[in-house]
């Protein structure tokens, strides 16, 4: 219990520091959003418009920083960040984020879970049958794939399956002429559009899980209690799963919880390459366009997600592994 409380206290402190940094950082950047929006017109509007845009965005009026900070904290509590300045001018930030969130959760979230499940499974079996066909094939292949830049792999897949073979759609998250609905046709279309980006993410992230799981397994398999279980004549799959894997998976679980937290950050390059409008792409746009409200909402979302994930991972590890509770 004391352990959990200490973790929660640490969580609150980190959260406050992150929130404050989140407030300060955008304000230390040069330029202002009115100038940024002019850049999007490829020289189509006159510089005289800067003044007008500043008025529209209210960026000319300088508020006192303390009042800004207090207003900021109040808005954070209610997730009210006002309208987006430049990325989606005028739209409420919460709305913009909510539009992008399902796409990222669907694409990056599902592939993260899949990559973890598959990678861990392959790692377990590979280590159990060390030197077997699976073990000599899978880890090297996927470890090599995991160091391939995933946006490059994405481009190659677009070229092969999209441009040359015309098998799969490769841009947008759905056929843009369709109206979003919950009909099977639309859902099928969304899934079809998710295949290439999802597959790219999957095969480039799975290697890490395989490698760590396999290594943990091998160390665990040398433990006395595993030998003991074998000596007792337990069936192989019970020894593998209940005795070895159960202990070996602990470090991987922590990693998994943390990577779930990072899901909200999106996969910036994948979303760019596949013209997929998720959170990662939104974040990049917000930074490029100096869209402070949107930036802050996204950074906040990501920070909180990662902090919560770390907290959950800590607590989960403590519950699964009594040894960690006594530490410190």
């Amino acid at each position: 219990m004391r352990f959990v409380l200490r973790r929660v206290g640490f969580f609150v402190l980190t959260l406050w520091v992150a929130l404050t940094l989140n407030f300060l950082l955008p304000r230390m950047m040069p330029g202002n959003p009115a100038l940024a929006i002019i850049g999007r017109f490829k020289g189509g509007i006159s510089p005289q418009a800067v003044k007008v845009l500043q008025d529209q965005f209210g960026v000319g009026t300088r508020q006192n920083p303390v009042a800004q900070y207090l207003a900021y904290l109040r808005n954070v509590a209610t997730f009210n960040f006002g309208p987006s300045l430049t990325t989606m001018p005028g739209e409420p930030v919460s709305q913009v984020v909510l539009h992008a969130l399902p796409w990222t959760l669907g694409l990056v979230g599902v592939t993260t879970i899949l990559a973890f499940a598959l990678g861990t499974g392959i790692g377990i079996v590979g280590a159990w049958r060390r030197g077997g066909l699976l073990d000599s094939l899978m880890p090297p292949v996927f470890v090599i794939l995991s160091v391939v830049p995933y946006f490059w792999l994405g481009l190659v897949l677009i070229l092969i399956f999209g441009v040359k073979l015309h098998l799969l759609p490769y841009f947008f998250s759905y056929d843009y002429t369709l109206t979003p609905s919950l009909s099977p046709a639309f859902i099928g279309n969304v899934l079809e559009h998710a295949i290439l980006p999802g597959f790219t993410l999957l095969i480039t992230t799975i290697g890490t899980w395989i490698l760590t799981m396999r290594n943990n397994m091998i160390t665990t398999l040398a433990e006395d209690y595993v030998r003991m279980a074998r000596a007792k004549g337990l069936p192989g799959h019970r020894v593998m799963l209940d005795y070895a894997a159960r202990n070996a998976i602990l470090p991987n679980l922590t990693g998994f919880a943390m990577s779930l937290g990072f899901v909200l950050g999106g996969a910036i390059l994948i979303e760019e390459v596949f013209n997929y409008q998720g959170v990662g792409w939104l974040l990049l746009q917000a930074v490029n366009n100096e869209d402070y409200p949107l930036m802050q909402a996204l950074f906040l979302l990501i920070t909180v997600a990662v902090l919560v994930a770390i907290l959950v991972a800590d607590v989960a590890t403590a519950m699964l592994d009594p040894r960690t509770r006594g530490a410190r």
């Binding site: 999007r40 017109f41 418009a49 845009l53 990325t87 989606m88 001018p89 005028g90 746009q285 490029n288």
Partner: peptide, 19 residues
Amino acid sequence: ESGGTWTCDFNPFNLSDIS
């Protein structure tokens, strides 16, 4: 390439929507 998704706003006096 506009570098963004659409806001679906069409106010002809707003520089973000006029085009």
